[in-house]
Nucleic acid binder design. Structure first.
Lengths: 351, 351
DNA sequence: TTGAAAGCGCTAACAT
DNA sequence: ATGTTAGCGCTTTCAA
């Protein structure tokens, strides 16, 4: 690896001249010098040492990205969009960390980023307790979180980019109602993310608007303490058995996310129920996998690429200008009609 | 952020003493000094600046990880295991890159790693052409590739960690044969990865061993030039339509991977065929999602966590000791029986 | 228009 | 057992 001094020698100029062209300060440079420098750089295949540059400037073109588990297709999807945006639009690389929703791991990740001089970090699907985030921000990190903040309205040092969860669930429930369903359930896993409560509110809002408040229940399954890939799906599967036994049995199910919906599909099948013959199911996320399910899953699709763009813009922008105040950014989801929703069976089940 | 000089001042010792405790050179240090230093470090919440350290030592505890797309659940799975092993066993962070199977992006990633002083890189599911890899190795990267190398037997500067693909496909085909299938097909996408040809050989070997060589065909669909998440599944879906129309129609299908199998399941269903009633399908990979399919997909499971361990051990090990020669590491897959394989229909279809 | 030199925070040889 | 110091490769004043 050649250094800036090698290039200077090769070009017969000083290192500061090389540094100047490296950093685009070429306004008052003679054409000839510039060319000689460029030739030398090319000849030596020279690349500036980032560590040295960073030691001087305090900056490095990297971002941290924290996810519960990159094996989860939804986080994989977001991660891909984030990494691509960071790279293609801002030439930043991405350091990835899996947290398994473990706070100590999150803190360790922030520490390492700081030690490496990485100042921007994107946190996907956080724990509800944001205190260690605020602490990391005080230590110098610029943070953007995917998903809503825990206490809406409260001041935060963190950007929050999320989908309009209320609207997403409302859309899902309204679709079911429109198809004729009168006995609804919102199916979820207990207390993991913030988005949950807003979704429940949206679900209820749709039911109330249709005069169905008394027929819209929330069915809730607990997750294990340790993070597993199929955790969500397992909850769905387990809950499906319970749902199958309920009287009256709901005919329209809104799942808190696509993964849980997959579990529902599998569990309902195991319980001898047909989807959408006996029960209709609608997911939320819009993973490409949903189109492959049997039946293809109707779902509420999140505008992931657009959200990822905003996420990256915000970290980079606020790193460049610390004066920018953190904000909340809400995106609108869309219904994706497929085959898991149909009219309810003619004979109301369970009655 | 405090520096080593701040700590030295606080503890009333020299910077080299601080550096010594930072680097574990504390054999002949007085108990008292050590304690004073540790107290000072804790008091200032001091963390060594990695960039400065790296500028001195030339090392940084980071690894690169290159995948075609982290949105693909299989790569997400491997990535998670790799990141976890790197972090928990070697305290290395991971820089992630999506390549979309684009060689220019791969080269750009290597360049950046080198500029950042990252010396180890893990490449998952490479392009067949490995020349730019060898070039990156010459420039100083230690590389480990997931999946077999292009020309077995040829010398390589790269470690290759892979599953025994021949055995995987043989296992799959043998399972189908054992269940009574006599008309088999190996279903794949054309020419993307190396593993393909070995799988085909394994598939054929199983057929030949059962005297079924003439009844074991390979069905091959082409992928689009640009990388898409559902690329594999799309191929499977498209091919399913073709398979449904074949006469005699194969009753036992071995898919080159789980994703393609998902497409097969969806496409077969669309063609009005039942799995496993009319056609049996077996995948390869063992993604957790396979258990959620309808029917739950029988598959050949790869020992991903063990492979990831080896991958990480190799990069780290060879970075520490460049004298270690690159090698090939083969892992044994296992059959995971689920519901997508059954005996063939009594009336041979298509005859 | 170009060059000299200080210094970013750390490590490690060398001195004491 | 502890301290002094050169130098890793770069950026950036300041001087010429």
């Amino acid at each position: 690896m050649s250094t800036i001094a090698d290039v200077a020698r090769q070009a017969g100029v000083s290192v500061s001249t090389i540094s100047n062209v490296l950093n685009g300060r070429i306004e008052r440079m003679s054409r000839e010098t510039l060319e000689r420098v460029q030739t030398a750089i090319a000849a030596l295949d020279y690349r500036p040492n980032r560590a040295a540059r960073q030691l001087k400037t305090g900056h490095t073109p990297m971002l941290g990205l924290l996810v519960p588990s990159i094996a989860n297709p939804m986080y994989g999807y977001i991660a891909r969009e984030v990494e691509t945006a960071a790279q293609e639009r801002f030439e930043h690389r991405v350091v990835l960390g899996n947290t398994y929703r473990n706070q100590a791991k999150e803190v360790g990740f922030f520490d390492d980023l700081l030690a490496h001089g990485v100042r921007g970090v994107i946190v996907i699907s956080s724990l509800i307790d944001e205190r260690h985030f605020e602490h990391a921000v005080q230590r110098g990190l610029v943070m953007v979180s995917y998903d809503r903040r825990a206490t809406p309205g409260a001041a935060s040092a963190i950007d929050h980019v999320s989908v309009d969860n209320h609207e997403a669930a409302r859309l899902a429930a309204a679709h079911l109602i429109e198809r004729g369903h009168r006995e609804l359930a919102f199916v979820t896993a207990s207390g993991v993310t913030m988005s949950r409560s807003e979704k429940i509110r949206g679900f209820r809002a749709a039911a109330e608007a249709a005069g169905l408040a008394a027929h819209a229940r929330v069915i809730d399954g607990s997750t294990s303490s340790e993070y597993g890939d199929s955790e969500m799906a397992d909850v769905g599967r387990r809950l499906a058995a319970r749902i199958a036994a309920e009287r009256p049995r709901p005919t329209g199910l809104v799942a808190v996310n696509d993964m849980l919906a997959y579990g529902l599909l599998a569990g309902l099948r195991e319980a001898g129920l047909s989807v959408p013959g006996d029960v209709s199911v609608i997911g939320m996320d819009g993973l490409f996998l949903s189109a492959l399910m049997s039946p293809a899953l109707t779902t509420v699709r999140l505008p992931v690429p657009a959200m990822a763009q905003t996420i990256v813009e915000r970290v980079i922008g606020r790193m460049a200008d610390p004066g920018i105040a953190p904000g909340e950014f809400l995106f609108t989801p869309e219904l994706e009609r497929r085959d898991s929703v149909a009219a309810p069976p003619a004979t109301r089940s369970g009655t």
